[in-house]
């Protein structure tokens, strides 16, 4: 099985991705994460305006069998959440880097970005897992 790891994104060891757009970032979970979770049936998201801290839990993603925690890849204020996931949580399975995006953050500290993994580093992480 080949898992998609788009080269333009940044990654965490917790299998989240971040798409950087100036001082904001769109966040989701990786193809590998959705594959291990299985069919996503429920996503618990923070409210717009909530403040997230890098590395801290911000939500929950549930598949048919398991409950998994979501960790903030970066610190910031929630600008948008993907409310379509309420009705179509399996978007995370079918399009983890597109329609399955989870939220958008206004970054508190853009310096934190340097602590994220590149696509190559994330691919290595999966290979050695």
């Amino acid at each position: 099985m080949s898992e998609k790891i788009p080269s333009e994104l940044k990654y965490t060891e917790e299998h989240e991705w971040a798409r950087l757009q100036g001082s904001s970032a769109v966040v989701g979970v990786t193809d590998h994460a959705q594959g291990s979770l299985g069919d996503v049936v429920y996503v618990e998201l923070p409210k717009v305006g909530a403040t997230l801290t890098k590395g801290k839990q911000f939500g929950v993603i549930e598949s048919t069998k398991a409950v998994s925690e979501l960790y903030a890849p970066l610190s910031g204020k929630v600008l948008k959440v993907n409310s379509d996931l309420t009705d179509n949580p399996t978007d995370i399975n079918t399009d983890p880097y597109g329609d399955g995006w989870i939220l958008e953050l206004e970054l508190t500290d853009t310096q934190e970005v340097s602590g994220l993994l590149s696509a190559e580093a994330y691919a290595d992480l999966l290979k050695n897992a």
């Binding site: 099985m1 299985g38 069919d39 048919t64 399975n93």
Partner: peptide, 22 residues
Amino acid sequence: LGARMVDFAGWDMPVQYSSVIA
């Protein structure tokens, strides 16, 4: 068939092949 296997009651069993919902 590409099943994901798990330990169930001491048996190595398929939990899913492609998708639980499908």
